[in-house]
């Protein structure tokens, strides 16, 4: 119990319950199955990206470029398939491969040039995005192959959207990697103490390549979901939202300096953002309030966890004082 209270996920969970109850009280539609399924569907792309961003943060890195990676993967995939034909499988294969390659470039640059990851990925964001614009000359592809539409329309029995299944599949797969493989624990170890990881014999290069490659993979994989959701390929529809994804992951309790964070927290961070956007509209508050509320929640959240950390550090016993007379 004590452990539970010290975790930020616990407070996030409470906040979600309270908000959910409030929204439902004001408008019962909020808790309707249809609304929840719609939210799951429309946030599936965002959710997939947040999983990748979490893994990068866990390893002690950061990636800003993933939106550009997704953008490139999406556009190139759609363009290639329109030109040469293909199906859903080749779309996933192609865009994931593009994502992995671009992600690996990030990983190699960060490892070998020893540039801080935030700087490296800001540079590659500009590089990837600029190149895409030059290649595409900014042309929007309005008609995407029909199988994208089918993907977005596919429902499991009970009306559960297929794209949300993909999101949940990504979460489960990542959970297995993080908790049931040596690699997963290595990612936590690297994020906890880089120098120790090198000394104890962790292969830092491989871990980094995996982490940034995985972020790239999920960006590419997710971009197919994105295409399905928006039914077009617009060269600037994803770039610019990188900080929103990071905000969701941080809200979910991940430590921005690495080593701590959980998939459950990240899922709840995304859920919170989704609920705010949707709930405010449902209770009749203008969507203009959206970012204001998210900003406030974010600020309160990071301040709370920082103060909690300071309090705990101050309380930790430094000296075992002998009580009583000597």
């Amino acid at each position: 119990m004590k452990k539970l209270v010290s975790r930020s996920e616990f407070y996030l969970f409470l906040l979600i319950l309270v908000l959910g109850a409030g929204f439902t009280a004001a408008n019962p539609k909020f808790l309707s199955l249809q609304n929840i399924l719609d939210l799951l569907k429309s946030y599936s792309f965002f959710g997939i990206l947040s999983v990748g961003a979490l893994v990068v943060l866990l390893s002690g890195g950061i990636d800003i470029s993933f939106t550009a990676v997704a953008q490139v993967a999406e556009y190139v995939t759609v363009a290639v398939i329109l030109q040469y034909g293909g199906n859903l499988f080749t779309a996933f294969l192609l865009s994931s491969s593009i994502g992995i390659v671009l992600g690996l470039i990030n990983g190699l640059l960060i490892h070998f040039l020893q540039i801080p990851p935030i700087i490296t990925t800001i540079a590659t964001l500009n590089l990837y995005f600029g190149c895409l614009y030059v290649i595409s000359t900014g042309n929007i592809i309005y008609r995407v192959p029909k199988f994208f539409e089918d993907l977005s329309g596919t429902m499991l029995p009970g009306g559960f959207p297929m794209v949300a299944v993909l999101w949940i599949g990504v979460v489960i797969g990542t959970w297995v990697i993080l908790h049931q493989t040596v690699l997963g624990r290595s990612i936590y170890a690297l994020g906890g103490n880089l120098i120790a990881a090198e000394r104890v014999g962790f292969k830092v290069l491989y871990i980094r390549l995996f982490v940034y490659g995985f972020m790239g993979f999920l960006s590419g994989f997710g971009s197919v979901v994105h295409t399905a959701l928006v039914q077009s390929a617009i060269p600037n529809s994803i770039v610019g939202h990188e900080l929103d994804v990071l905000a969701a992951v941080v809200l979910g309790g991940a430590n921005i300096f690495g080593g701590a964070g959980s998939l459950a927290g990240t899922f709840m961070g995304v859920a919170l953002l989704a609920m705010l956007g949707n709930g405010l509209t449902l209770i009749g508050i203008s969507s203009y309030w959206n970012d204001v509320v998210i900003g406030i929640v974010l600020l309160v959240g990071v301040t709370f966890s920082s103060l909690q950390r300071m309090y705990l550090a101050g309380r930790r016993a430094k000296v075992v004082v002998e009580e009583g007379a000597l």
Binding site: R185, S186, Y188, A189, G192, N193, A196, V200, G201
Partner: peptide, 20 residues
């Protein structure tokens, strides 16, 4: 400096390098 992983458990700190 001990080179431990403060974010992992005692068990993981001791056994992970072996498993690795």
């Amino acid at each position: 400096d001990l080179s431990l992983f403060a974010n992992l458990t005692v068990a993981e700190n001791i056994a992970l390098p072996r498993v690795l």
